[in-house]
């Protein structure tokens, strides 16, 4: 049950580390790299709280093993900060009140980022589809959809 040596980039910085093969990407990022912005919700790929962007695709990091990230380019919510400034998506969640308890928020923000990277001016249906894998038990989603509209420069 030996460790596995993997190389990857996370939020722009390169790492080469030994990981336990049974660790998920989520666990490695939180426990080994101490990036705790990403949350664990269900651990079964249903809630989206642990969403990250890996090689340009939104994924649930509880359903990806750390060794599967070998050679990948990973972005977590921490990686959205640029020179100490919040990303426009983060700013939009604040402005519209798209955050209540905040547990789903890192995942929601990563899902929004992935959506806007591909679809800069999404329709409401695009937003519903893009965020379909992210559960929020507080807001009823309306404020979150408004955050995505705001982040994409569209009127609510």
């Amino acid at each position: 049950m030996g460790k596995v040596n993997i190389s990857f980039t996370i939020n722009g910085s390169s790492h080469q580390i030994d990981v336990e093969p049974q660790w998920t990407l989520l666990e490695m990022v939180r426990e080994q790299l101490h990036l705790t912005g990403t949350k664990e919700g269900c651990g079964t790929g249903d809630c989206g709280a642990c969403s990250m962007i890996v090689d340009g695709r939104l994924i649930t990091s509880c359903c990806m093993l750390a060794p599967q990230a070998d050679g990948s380019d990973v972005t977590t919510v921490e990686g959205l900060l640029a020179n100490g400034d919040l990303h426009p998506v983060q700013q939009a969640f604040i402005e519209t009140g798209g955050v209540q308890c905040g547990f789903c928020t890192p995942g929601m923000i990563m899902a929004t980022k992935a959506l806007l990277d591909r679809t800069p001016k999404p329709t409401l249906d695009d937003i519903r589809e893009g965020l379909a894998g992210n559960l929020c038990r507080c807001t009823g989603y309306t404020k979150i959809y408004e955050a995505v509209m705001t982040a994409s420069g569209q009127e609510i």
């Binding site: 939104l58 994924i59 359903c63 990806m64 379909a132 894998g133």
Partner: peptide, 9 residues
């Protein structure tokens, strides 16, 4: 099938 995160992997 499921949602975007699942279909991506």
């Amino acid at each position: 099938i499921a949602h975007p995160q699942i279909r991506n992997r």
